[in-house]
Amino acid sequence: MSENELFEKESELMIPFFKRLPVTFKRGKGCWLYDFNGKKYLDLIAGIACVSIGHSHPEFISRVYEQMRELMHVSNLFYTEPQIRLAEKLKEISGFDKFFFCNSGTEAVEAALKIARKVTGKKKFLALENSFHGRTMGALSITWKEKFRKPFEPLIQEVEFCKFNDVDDFLGRVNADICAVILEPIQGEAGVYEVSKEFMDAVFEEKERYGYLVIFDEVQTGFCRTGEWFAKDHFGCSPDIMTMAKAMASGFPIGGVAVTNEVANKIEISEHGSTFGGNPLACTASLATIEIMQKENLAENSRDMGGYFRKRLAELGFEARGKGLLIGFDVGDAKALVSKLLEKGVVANNTSDTTIRFAPPLVITKDEIDFAVDALEECL
Rank of each mutant, 00 (worst) to 15 (best):
L155M: 07
N265M: 05
E92R: 13
A314D: 08
E66H: 14
T284V: 09
G188K: 09
K114V: 08
G236Y: 10
S352E: 05
V167K: 10
E194Y: 02
E70I: 10
P361R: 07
E70L: 14
E107N: 13
M293D: 05
S52F: 07
E81F: 10
G277K: 02
L342G: 05
M14V: 14
E5L: 14
G47Y: 05
G345N: 05
A49Y: 02
I186A: 02
E129K: 05
I364N: 08
L113M: 15
K114C: 09
M305H: 00
L42V: 04
K295I: 03
L183H: 10
M72F: 11
T120E: 03
R85V: 13
G324D: 02
I327N: 00
G307I: 06
E81T: 11
K246T: 09
H133K: 02
I84F: 15
K19D: 09
V373W: 05
E206T: 15
C283R: 06
F25R: 06
D201V: 14
W229V: 10
F223N: 13
A139I: 07
V119R: 02
E300P: 02
E378W: 05
G222N: 07
E59L: 08
K147H: 02
R85M: 14
L86M: 06
R357N: 05
S250W: 06
G227D: 09
V263G: 10
L86W: 03
F152D: 05
E291K: 12
E5G: 12
K163C: 03
N165W: 00
G30Q: 03
R312Y: 04
M244W: 12
G95N: 00
F17A: 12
A139M: 04
L126Q: 06
K122A: 11
A264S: 10
F132A: 01
T284M: 01
D333L: 01
D233A: 15
I269S: 09
V195Y: 01
T80S: 15
G332V: 08
I290F: 03
Q220M: 10
L213R: 08
D97A: 06
T143V: 00
S62M: 10
A285F: 11
A288N: 07
N349Y: 14
I215P: 01
E92H: 14
R303M: 07
F204V: 07
L342C: 01
V338S: 00
A348Y: 06
F125W: 04
K147F: 02
T136H: 12
D169K: 05
A231C: 12
Y193L: 06
E5F: 13
Y210E: 11
R63M: 15
F216W: 11
E343W: 07
G47I: 08
V219W: 00
H55T: 01
M244N: 04
L183Y: 14
N130L: 15
L42I: 03
T24E: 12
I45K: 10
D168T: 14
S339G: 08
R69A: 14
K323L: 03
N130K: 13
N76R: 15
F100P: 01
S104P: 00
Q157V: 10
R225F: 07
G236Q: 09
I356V: 04
T243V: 11
E110A: 01
